[in-house]
Design a protein around this nucleic acid. Structure first.
Lengths: 209, 209, 209, 209
DNA sequence: GATGAATGAGCTTTCATTCAT
DNA sequence: AATGAATGAAAGCTCATTCAT
């Protein structure tokens, strides 16, 4: 009886946290496949990530991969969605309760930079995906919607000087991705102070002050 | 006698201009291969660019490709060098006679943006190459040397506010590449005015004014 | 119950005979590949035995060949082991119960001669393999071990006159292989009487009588 | 004048020795090709001896190879003739003035053994050629004619016991080739005494004494 | 759900051969 | 006689995908 209660409580918590974080639950094997593929794409590229390598890395059989995905294309596209939603969830979770635009402007940049530098294989996968023929939406960066909306909001509400939002996307997303790549590829880490300086310059150039 | 003089002069000019611009002369077939491959990589990606497609596109035989390149890898690496030196030559040629730092800051950004938007396949190839396992130097963008040097020069001579040059590389290169990609992928062209605005913001954020 | 006993007995016999004869069981497809390759190597040589010819001859797909063998080299090496162990098993099986050295001296020569002349493709394959770069152990003949041991035993027990066993290997193995090749290539069959004569001469030259 | 005489003498000697030894003179480049091919076939086998490797090894152009030989097949066949006649010339040259059959029986065996062990690549080439599809005469060993004739002569003149000459070919040629291969492959050299012992046994088994 | 042997189209690469110079 | 760039058929091999168990 006591046991049932505990289980029941755990169950409800689990559901609640899922609902709160808006995270879809994935079968264990599917996740193993995503993680194996992430490793391999970062190491060997799309071309070098063969299904047979993947089955070894993820410790599943060929049949299992084709149980969850209809083709390699399908796997790559779902994988992109999987990691994008992971990053989006992470960025959102860091924004809880923040209100002021400037603060969000700073915080979003830093959060994304930290995520990419701490998860370099995710960045490498995104960059390869974005520039590959798999990217059929032809989206030029990893966050078509969220960041565009955020910057447009800044223009519309006069936090940022009047200009096409695309100009700000180029500056904001361009700098965060390039800074992350400089770190990942070049092993040159921008410290807290450097990052603050960089966003200051962005804000100084972009904000309506 | 006069003719000899002319020929001799023309000859010397030819040599001199080659030497000055430091342009290596390539065999006709090698260029045909580069151009065919550029077309195909932009259309179908690295994976999709098979040797048999390439031989048709470039109108050469398989054997000829392997006469000039030891492998597909070798081709891709040499091709990257080929187009990089082409873009570098182009950027340099546009800088003749310019003196003031601010002017060069504006002009270099615009020149590269225009080159990429007018030669989108070169940009697509660069982006795919940079993020692929072919890029063994692990350079995070297309111009390791030239632009870094230029921005460092700005810091050293107090044209730009004191900061790590990498911060400026992230902002400057990041924005030019992202703006170009927004144009190429999204068909949203930033017009002359927009570009001016963007660089203004960069300059405003970065310059020691 | 009786049935169980029978099955159990049959099972034990099966295991026992395999164990006794020390014969590894091979997958059906692997054997088909060996047999197809034997045919083709005898007909067309190593060079002429292409993978596509082999898949037709053995009635398997390319992928299946590479499922069992990592490369053509690997196939050829495993194939050599396969046929060597087959011949060894055959020679051993013919020796059951024989005791006297002279009898074994005669019988082993004849058994091998008959095997090679009745299975000329095996001889042709061995000869091609032995003299090719595939033969990395650089073994000069097909039975370094078994026949060397047999002849050394003859010297050690004074059945044969004192001499380096290699001398006897050269005479014994050399004559059986050359006689077989004369038959296979030249269609000149040494009849029972001829063979007896040849071994007589060998024995007469080698034995301590 | 004195010089002319010397040259003329040298020239006549050269012609005379060629006539005496019955050696056809080959163009320098043709010999370079034979020697390069010998090296490569011994190292890499027939399959591994590609025309492009050969041009590097022999330091000639592709065109030159096809000037002297109509095809790779043609090259291999002519090459076999070239080295066979070299060995034949060598064996003959060692027999000058010998008369007695027994002496020739001993001397021919030893001469061939010494030649093969001192020129292992020639032996390797012969063995590969004999067992390959290039050998269209289907000759089972390297000396179809000469040694058969010699052994038949022994039977016909009652130096050897009555028997099919093929029996003697198997014993004589088989042992000399196997002994050479044991040396070349196994690095086990039979010394003068061993060789004498081996031929003694052959003679004892074969001769009509 | 999970397995992995089997498939075969298509890949990268090799290589004997040709031919303009 | 000699060169070597060019050819393209065919080689060895890979890999996304299927399907009987």
């Amino acid at each position: 009886m006591a046991q049932t209660l505990v289980l029941s409580f755990a169950f409800r918590m689990n559901v609640r946290s899922r609902v709160m974080k808006n995270i879809k639950e994935f079968p264990e094997k599917e996740i193993a496949i995503y993680e194996g593929a992430l490793e391999l794409v970062a190491k060997y590229g799309f071309h070098g990530t063969s299904m047979s390598l993947l089955t070894k890395e993820a410790n599943v059989s060929t049949g299992t991969v084709y149980h969850y995905f209809s083709s390699k294309d399908d796997l790559m596209k779902k994988m992109y969605c999987y990691y994008r939603s992971k990053v989006e969830a992470h960025v959102s979770s860091q924004l809880d309760g923040e209100k002021e635009y400037k603060q969000r402007f700073y915080s979003r940049w830093k959060t994304l930079y930290l995520y990419y530098t701490q998860n370099p294989r995710v960045l490498q996968f995104f960059e390869q995906f974005i520039n590959s023929p798999y990217n059929q939406e032809r989206s030029p960066h990893h966050f078509t919607g969220a960041y565009f909306t955020f910057l447009k909001e800044g223009v519309d509400n006069n936090y940022l000087k009047p200009a096409k939002p695309e100009i700000y996307v180029a500056m904001y997303m361009g700098s965060v991705i390039m800074a992350s790549k400089i770190n990942v590829f070049g092993s040159i880490l921008l410290d807290e102070e450097d990052r603050e300086l960089l966003i200051n310059k962005l804000w100084y150039g972009m904000a309506d002050i």
